[in-house]
């Protein structure tokens, strides 16, 4: 069986002209990037736009990747800046929407989860709901720490923050997540947690 090429080997191949190898890199990291984008965008359409933009930007800048950090860390840095730019543009367009309306939107979002029946009453659905209610940075830190296999230093690098700040934010995010899960699950929380 052919051994899977590492990220660095794939990047070398792309830089040497085998641009089709980029498809493998996209396939390998698309779920991480998309999940991270979801933490900021909160809806699939916007998240796909952010994720797609991230991969295009990464492709353009591939020659500048110094290989002193993991490719995934570098990619998450691009995802973060792309998401920030996207949200800034979107905020300019939706300045008229006040906090009250945002609250209603959030409730609808939760009720759509609840309306989907027994199958979704699993821990993961509630966990996703709870993550959605966290601050975008906190939600991204949780994702990077648990799913991106990133150290506190690497997360700090991607989000342009000190590792100690990330440590504090991670603790805060986990505490809030626990509280939100307790609120969402009420009596079921003891079975789940």
């Amino acid at each position: 069986m052919q051994q899977q090429l590492s990220d660095i080997e794939l990047i070398t191949a792309i830089l040497e002209g085998n641009t089709a190898a980029y498809a493998e890199l996209v396939k390998r990291h698309q779920r991480y990037v998309f999940t991270l984008a979801m933490r900021y965008a909160k809806n699939r359409e916007d998240a796909e736009e952010i994720a797609q933009d991230t991969f295009v930007k990464a492709y353009r800048a591939l020659g500048t990747f110094k290989q002193s950090s993991k490719f995934s860390t570098w990619l998450f840095t691009i995802t973060y800046t792309t998401a920030m730019t996207f949200l800034r543009k979107k905020r300019l367009l939706t300045d008229s929407i006040n906090d009250e309306e945002s609250g209603i939107q959030l409730e609808n979002h939760i009720s759509s989860y609840q309306a989907n029946g027994i199958e979704q009453r699993s821990g993961y659905v509630f966990l996703n709901q709870a993550i959605d209610q966290l601050l975008p940075d906190d939600a991204a830190i949780i994702t990077l720490f648990y799913k991106g296999e990133q150290s506190l230093e690497e997360i700090g690098q991607a989000l342009k923050m000190e590792p100690n700040t990330i440590k504090v934010k991670l603790h805060r995010a986990r505490t809030r997540l626990k509280e939100k899960l307790q609120f969402l699950l009420k009596d079921e929380v003891k079975e789940l947690l």
């Binding site: 996209v26 991480y32 998309f34 699939r44 998240a47 993961y124 966990l127 789940l192 947690l193």
Partner: peptide, 25 residues
Amino acid sequence: LNELMASEELEEPSMSFSRNVMDAV
């Protein structure tokens, strides 16, 4: 809670995602 977060599945983009990226690239 730690186990739950560690075993959570990542979000999956649409089927055409990688094709769209490669078209843009």
